[in-house]
């Protein structure tokens, strides 16, 4: 994720949670959080508990989110050079209580949002948990539609999936499926098809929905089959290598523990046997090749047209 993508991501998040953007450039946002975003992002359960119990007017936090550190620092430097040098060393100012002109008023902590930073990770997590299940309707194209005619919409099940290929190492893929609940047709890259559309949570006027002939359960089954069929065609060289490492290690420990068991005294044997079993399990845990598929998010999408 580059600085530009992060910037866009942050902007979308702030907008969708009704935060007030006080100032922005392509490299930063100064933002006053909405109560909703404050609850999610600032980890102040006691404060919000207090607000909820007393009904006090909440005072949300403000942040300086820097999405492109280099650019931002440079622009600040240029600004300072233009305004003449800062008279007060920032650190000294803090100790003597001068208030820095630009931070007068609300305290505005700076957070650098780069890929891997904790705050961005938190925004990712917030998006994930706040965007899991949807039920949406495509906004009709008002120019084209005739006021007296009703447009037919098809309900789709949309499912974004994460597929993990795992042994002692791991890689991932993301798959996006859509199944028409009217016809049962299953398509891939469904999210791409959706992303260009404008959506609304309410049923638009002059729209009728085609009857579902496929149950959710059945649609899910079709997605699973499609995915499975696709995954069968993959190269499993990585898994064969892992399985071979697993086998080699199992042989090594079998040799080791068998010899130990053979020469051990009776009372020590149980103990050795336990160690042996534990070690076997550890090797399986470490190397066993497997593929895991799970949902990232899903929803019902009502799209114009019958298909």
């Amino acid at each position: 994720m580059n600085a530009k993508q992060i910037h866009r991501f942050v902007q979308h998040y702030l907008e969708s949670t009704d935060c007030r953007i006080i100032e922005k450039s392509p490299a930063h946002f100064k933002v006053k959080l909405s109560p909703l975003a404050d609850r999610i992002l600032t980890n102040r359960p006691y404060y919000w508990g207090f607000v909820d119990r007393t009904g006090a007017e909440p005072e949300t936090m403000s942040f300086l989110f820097v999405t492109d550190k280099e650019k931002y620092d440079q622009s600040v430097e240029e600004q300072t050079a233009k305004d003449g040098p800062d008279q007060t060393d920032a650190a000294l100012a803090r100790s003597f209580g001068y208030v820095h002109a630009t931070t007068a008023g609300a305290r505005m902590p700076r957070e650098d949002l780069y890929y891997g930073s904790k705050r961005l990770e938190q925004l990712f997590e917030a998006a994930r948990s706040g965007g899991s299940y949807v039920c949406l309707f495509q906004e009709p194209d008002t120019k084209k539609s005739h006021p007296m005619e009703s447009t037919a919409y098809t309900p789709w099940l949309g499912l974004n999936m994460r597929v993990e290929f795992q042994c002692d190492r791991k890689r991932e893929e993301i798959h996006s499926f859509g199944v028409s609940l009217a016809t049962g047709q299953c398509v891939e890259q469904f999210q791409d098809r959706l992303s260009g559309l404008r959506m609304t949570p309410r049923l638009p006027p002059n729209v009728h929905i085609a009857r579902s002939s496929v149950t959710l359960h059945k649609a899910a089954g079709m997605i699973e089959q499609t995915l499975e069929k696709k995954l069968r065609t993959y190269d499993y060289g990585w898994a064969e290598e892992a399985a071979q490492r697993l086998e080699e290690e199992q042989q090594l420990i079998a040799h080791y523990y068998d010899a130990m068991l053979a020469s051990a005294e009776e009372e020590a044997k149980t103990h050795i046997q336990t160690q042996f079993e534990n070690r076997k399990a550890e090797i399986d845990w470490q190397y066993k090749p497997r593929v895991l598929a799970s949902a990232i998010n899903c929803g019902i999408f009502h799209l114009a047209g019958i298909d």
């Binding site: 979308h12 998040y13 706040g130 965007g131 949807v134 999210q191 959506m199 990232i296 998010n297």
Partner: peptide, 11 residues
């Protein structure tokens, strides 16, 4: 139901 914007951000 969750919001469309967040759904897109999540993915």
């Amino acid at each position: 139901w969750d919001e469309w914007v967040l759904y897109k951000l999540a993915i």
